[in-house]
Simulated scan of single mutants.
Amino acid sequence: MGARLKGNIMLLMTAMIWGGGFVAQSAGMDYIGPFTFCAARYVLAMLALIPVIFLFSVQARKNPQAGLWEKFAPDRPTLWGGLYCGLTLGVADALQQVGICYTTAGKAGFITALYIIMVPLMERVLGKRIPKVLAFCVLLAIVGFYFLCVNEELSVGYGDFLTLCCAVFFSLHILVIDHFMKKKADGIKLSWVQFAVSFVFASMLTAVFETVTWEMLWAARYPLLFAGIISSGIAYTLQILGQKYTDPTIATLLMSLESVFAVLAGWAVLGEVMSGREIFGCGLVFVAVLLAQLPLPVLKR
Results as ranks from 00 to 15, higher is better:
residue 115 Y to P: 12
residue 99 G to I: 08
residue 97 Q to F: 13
residue 203 S to F: 14
residue 175 L to C: 11
residue 281 G to E: 10
residue 89 L to F: 14
residue 265 A to G: 11
residue 261 F to R: 07
residue 5 L to C: 00
residue 148 L to Y: 01
residue 24 A to H: 09
residue 64 P to C: 12
residue 107 K to W: 06
residue 247 D to L: 05
residue 95 L to P: 01
residue 113 A to R: 02
residue 214 W to T: 11
residue 217 L to N: 06
residue 108 A to E: 03
residue 121 L to V: 15
residue 251 A to C: 07
residue 210 E to I: 13
residue 125 V to K: 12
residue 161 F to K: 06
residue 197 V to D: 10
residue 159 G to S: 04
residue 50 I to W: 14
residue 156 V to T: 05
residue 293 Q to G: 06
residue 228 G to L: 02
residue 140 L to C: 14
residue 25 Q to E: 00
residue 36 T to S: 15
residue 246 T to W: 00
residue 163 T to G: 00
residue 261 F to N: 06
residue 184 K to D: 13
residue 39 A to D: 05
residue 213 T to R: 04
residue 284 L to V: 09
residue 19 G to H: 09
residue 223 P to I: 10
residue 64 P to Q: 09
residue 183 K to E: 14
residue 19 G to L: 10
residue 195 F to S: 02
residue 219 A to N: 13
residue 13 M to Y: 00
residue 62 K to D: 09
residue 209 F to H: 08
residue 176 V to W: 07
residue 17 I to R: 09
residue 215 E to F: 00
residue 225 L to I: 12
residue 119 V to K: 02
residue 189 K to L: 04
residue 205 L to V: 12
residue 202 A to T: 03
residue 23 V to C: 02
residue 65 Q to H: 12
residue 54 F to A: 13
residue 181 M to A: 07
residue 299 L to M: 14
residue 140 L to M: 15
residue 295 P to R: 11
residue 194 Q to H: 13
residue 154 L to R: 11
residue 201 F to D: 03
residue 299 L to N: 03
residue 112 T to Q: 04
residue 84 Y to D: 00
residue 74 P to T: 10
residue 186 D to N: 03
residue 94 A to Q: 04
residue 230 I to K: 06
residue 28 G to C: 10
residue 40 A to P: 03
